[in-house]
Measured scan of single mutants.
Amino acid sequence: TFVEFNGKKVEYPTPEAAEKAAKKLAKKLNLKVTKKNGNYKLE
């Protein structure tokens, strides 16, 4: 499962880990999380 932000793509071993990381990053970077095709994107 990938988390995409600032043009970077980071892969996580589980969807749970990706979701957790996405939410944490979104909060830190003041972005919102969108889920697309099972992957997460911060914008």
Rank of each mutant, 00 (worst) to 15 (best):
T1D: 02
T1A: 11
T1M: 07
T1I: 13
T1L: 07
T1F: 15
T1N: 12
F2E: 04
F2T: 10
F2S: 07
F2V: 09
F2N: 04
F2D: 02
F2H: 06
F2L: 07
V3Q: 00
V3D: 01
V3C: 05
V3P: 00
V3W: 01
V3H: 00
V3L: 08
E4P: 00
E4N: 02
E4G: 01
E4Q: 06
F5V: 08
F5H: 08
F5R: 02
F5W: 12
F5K: 01
F5P: 01
F5C: 09
F5M: 07
F5S: 02
F5A: 04
N6Q: 10
N6S: 07
N6P: 03
N6T: 03
N6F: 14
N6Y: 13
N6V: 06
N6H: 14
N6C: 15
N6W: 14
G7W: 03
G7F: 05
G7C: 13
G7L: 02
G7M: 04
G7S: 05
K8P: 01
K8Q: 12
K8H: 13
K8N: 11
K8S: 09
K8F: 13
K8E: 09
K8V: 13
K9A: 09
K9Q: 09
K9H: 08
K9L: 11
K9E: 06
V10D: 04
V10A: 06
V10L: 12
V10C: 14
V10M: 12
V10H: 09
E11I: 14
E11K: 15
E11F: 15
E11T: 13
E11P: 10
E11C: 15
Y12D: 00
Y12V: 00
Y12I: 01
Y12L: 02
Y12M: 02
Y12H: 03
Y12P: 01
Y12C: 03
P13K: 10
P13C: 07
P13I: 05
P13F: 06
P13A: 11
P13G: 08
T14W: 03
T14D: 07
T14Q: 03
T14H: 05
T14E: 03
T14Y: 06
P15A: 13
P15E: 11
E16H: 10
E16T: 08
E16C: 12
E16V: 08
E16W: 07
A17T: 08
A17D: 11
A17V: 06
A17F: 05
A17E: 12
A17N: 04
A17S: 09
A18W: 00
A18K: 00
A18R: 00
A18D: 00
A18P: 00
A18G: 04
E19K: 12
E19F: 14
E19I: 07
E19T: 05
K20T: 11
K20S: 11
K20P: 00
K20D: 10
K20E: 13
K20Y: 10
K20F: 10
K20G: 06
K20V: 11
A21E: 06
A21L: 03
A21N: 04
A21H: 05
A21D: 04
A21F: 08
A21G: 05
A21R: 04
A22E: 00
A22T: 04
A22V: 08
A22R: 01
A22G: 01
A22H: 01
K23M: 14
K23C: 14
K23E: 11
K23Y: 15
K23H: 14
K23Q: 12
K23V: 12
K24I: 14
K24F: 14
K24E: 14
K24S: 13
K24R: 14
K24G: 09
L25I: 10
L25P: 00
L25F: 06
A26L: 02
A26G: 07
A26P: 00
A26E: 03
A26W: 01
A26N: 01
A26H: 02
A26F: 00
K27C: 14
K27P: 01
K27V: 08
K27F: 09
K27L: 11
K27S: 10
K27I: 11
K27W: 07
K27Q: 11
K28N: 09
K28I: 14
K28Q: 12
K28W: 13
K28R: 13
K28L: 14
K28T: 10
L29K: 05
L29D: 03
L29C: 14
L29N: 05
L29Y: 15
L29V: 03
L29I: 04
N30G: 15
N30T: 05
N30I: 04
N30F: 08
N30R: 10
N30L: 06
L31G: 02
L31E: 02
L31Q: 04
L31V: 06
L31W: 03
K32H: 10
K32G: 05
K32S: 10
K32W: 05
K32I: 15
V33I: 15
V33F: 05
V33S: 02
V33L: 12
V33R: 00
V33M: 10
V33H: 02
T34D: 05
T34F: 09
T34Q: 08
T34E: 08
K35G: 06
K35C: 14
K35R: 11
K36S: 14
K36W: 11
K36T: 14
K36H: 14
K36M: 14
K36C: 14
K36Q: 14
K36V: 15
N37D: 15
N37W: 04
N37M: 06
G38R: 05
G38N: 09
G38T: 04
G38S: 05
G38P: 04
G38A: 04
G38V: 02
G38Q: 05
G38I: 02
G38L: 04
G38F: 03
G38W: 01
N39E: 08
N39F: 09
N39K: 05
N39H: 13
N39Y: 11
N39L: 09
N39R: 06
Y40E: 03
Y40S: 02
Y40L: 09
Y40Q: 04
Y40M: 06
Y40A: 03
Y40C: 07
Y40N: 03
K41E: 13
K41C: 15
K41S: 12
K41Y: 15
L42V: 15
L42T: 03
L42G: 02
E43W: 10
E43Q: 08
E43P: 01
E43G: 06
E43F: 10
